[in-house]
Amino acid sequence: MTATTEAPSTHTDDSTDILARARTQVLENGQPLGYDDLVEVLRTGDDRLEELLQLAHDVRLRYNGDEVEVEGIVSLKTGGCPEDCHFCSQSGQFTSPVRSVWLNIPQLVRAAKQTRETGASEFCIVAAVRGPDEKLMTQMREAVKAIHAEVDIQVAASLGMLTQEQVDDLRDMGVHRYNHNLEAAKSYFPDVVTTHSYEERFQTCQMIRESGMELCCGGLVGMGETLEQRAELASQLAELDPHEVPLNFLNPRPGTPFENIEPMESNDALRTIAAFRLALPRTILRYAGGRELTLGDLGTRDGLMGGINAVIVGNYLTTLGRDPKEDLSLLSDLNMPIKALNATL
């Protein structure tokens, strides 16, 4: 269950007021908040939420500008994963209804074209595996070549844990960005996954970071972690210094160990968005899975005005998202221009 929000005390001294300190440290000086201050941010009350979101939005505008990066994703291999991530219906260990399906190259190219038509600058190919075998790497090589030949779009990938040889191969075949989420704070990770370790995920992220590819690394919130563990996750992501952080909110899936966890409260989710922005002032912070359930239409708008500067449009891997036209219309209403492809090259 999500942790409860504590009522804020009345502050008169800027040195003790967390939002005043954050304004000086992050907005004015460009220095991210550390763990202790992030915990304090996550404990602010609802009566200061608007002020917190405005601060996060100001930080986003100062260090990232007003553009929003749009991405589409497609699953190359869905279901049948051997890992036991407790939030994921693609695990072959659970009774959830997702079963193994592979897409072929023409289907991937078609999906990339449809993604580009939304205005997206990036197309991410995802596979539900512990890590890629030679069959998957061969298919990726063919897919990236075919997509680049027919579609003006960046290709990203998310294929699980990698060896150094695979990292180098993906970079050489033209993968622009690699996604590998930490998923949860180190202290909470054993409650979320038991078939591999936090350290294994962190090592893959470090290899990607050092390869020259952009690192996309985020996590999930609302999985039963404490506020302190949310702050820990944000701090550990800041340590990796990823180019992009996708922020997912648990959408409890039937048949998984987390199926009965109540969705996160909207205001807690918005506080989390703002806290992550203050921990990662220069990073692309992307709306990912679960925002529709957790935030709804109004909350989605508030998050875009509270630190978010990228979105995944369309459906996710095993859950439905919003109609891309709705997100694009919302960005237009908020006067947020979509980041052009040539700006990402």
Rank of each mutant, 00 (worst) to 15 (best):
Q114K: 13
Q114C: 07
R116P: 08
E117D: 13
T118G: 03
T118H: 05
G119P: 12
A120H: 11
S121F: 11
S121T: 13
F123M: 11
F123L: 08
C124Y: 06
I125Y: 02
I125M: 09
V126T: 14
V126A: 09
A128S: 15
V129A: 08
V129P: 01
V129N: 03
R130E: 08
R130S: 13
R130I: 02
D133R: 01
E134S: 15
K135S: 00
K135T: 00
K135G: 01
K135A: 01
L136Y: 06
L136F: 06
T138P: 00
Q139C: 11
M140L: 15
M140D: 02
M140H: 01
M140V: 14
R141H: 12
E142D: 15
A143I: 11
K145G: 12
K145A: 15
K145M: 04
A146W: 12
A146P: 13
A146E: 15
I147H: 14
I147Q: 13
I147T: 15
H148N: 07
A149G: 05
A149K: 13
A149Q: 15
V151N: 12
V151D: 09
V151H: 12
D152I: 01
D152P: 09
D152K: 09
I153D: 10
I153H: 07
Q154G: 03
Q154Y: 00
Q154E: 05
Q154F: 02
V155H: 01
V155W: 04
A156Y: 02
A156W: 05
